[in-house]
Simulated scan of single mutants.
Amino acid sequence: MRLTKPRIAPVQDADLTPDQKEILEPMGERVLNIFRTMVQAPKAAKGFLAWGNYVLSRRNDLPAREREIVILRIGYLCKSGYEWTQHHAIGLREGLTAAEIEAIKQGAAAPNWSPADRALLKASDELHNDQFVTDGTWAALTRHFSDKQCMDVVFTAGQYTQVSMILNSFGVQLDAGQVLDPDLKGF
């Protein structure tokens, strides 16, 4: 985690405005710190949630396991302990193994990736480092994914770069019961 305390405090239930309650109510009883923080700017939170819901929905044509490879790689590259922690559990639910999640830290150079997974990792690295997917990596992606899925790789990487910047800069802390990956301590 980059910060040990929030710069923007998450809103507690007793302090929610009507606009904030409206945004958080559909989330049920366990509202994550990211959303409690985002509702400090209700209009921004609404827009953020609309786009974020697309990226995490079935409207995103990238299969969930592959989507999580991109999200986890971006979260790791951005040194976002909160993002990594949340999506580590999601990645496991979506079919990644613990060993694969650990290998995401190494990126495309880690052994045992399929060519499709390697292309996703390379695209994530390129988008993070240069905000551009090279011709060679794009060609590798198109061997395994449709044009729409390739677009969704870029949309997903962009969304989770933004999420990581929000989490890191606002100091969003882990939710109760979560443990920070030791490789993301001290950033």
Rank of each mutant, 00 (worst) to 15 (best):
L49Q: 09
L49W: 04
A50D: 09
S57E: 05
S57Y: 02
R59I: 03
N60M: 07
D61A: 12
A64T: 09
A64L: 10
R67A: 01
E68Y: 10
L72H: 03
R73F: 08
G75L: 04
G75D: 05
G81F: 01
A89R: 14
A89E: 13
R93P: 03
E94T: 11
T97H: 05
E102I: 00
P111R: 12
P111S: 11
N112L: 13
A116G: 11
A116L: 04
R118Q: 13
R118Y: 05
A119P: 01
L121V: 02
S124Q: 06
S124E: 04
Q131Y: 15
F132D: 13
D135K: 11
W138M: 14
A140V: 03
L141T: 02
L141W: 08
R143L: 13
R143D: 15
H144S: 12
D147H: 13
K148G: 09
Q149F: 01
Q149A: 10
V153P: 04
V154Q: 12
F155W: 15
F155T: 05
T156C: 01
G158P: 07
Q159H: 12
M165C: 12
I166C: 10
F170I: 03
F170A: 15
G171W: 06
Q173H: 09
Q173D: 01
L174M: 07
A176E: 15
G177F: 07
Q178S: 14
V179W: 04
L180W: 01
P182A: 15
D183C: 07
D183N: 12
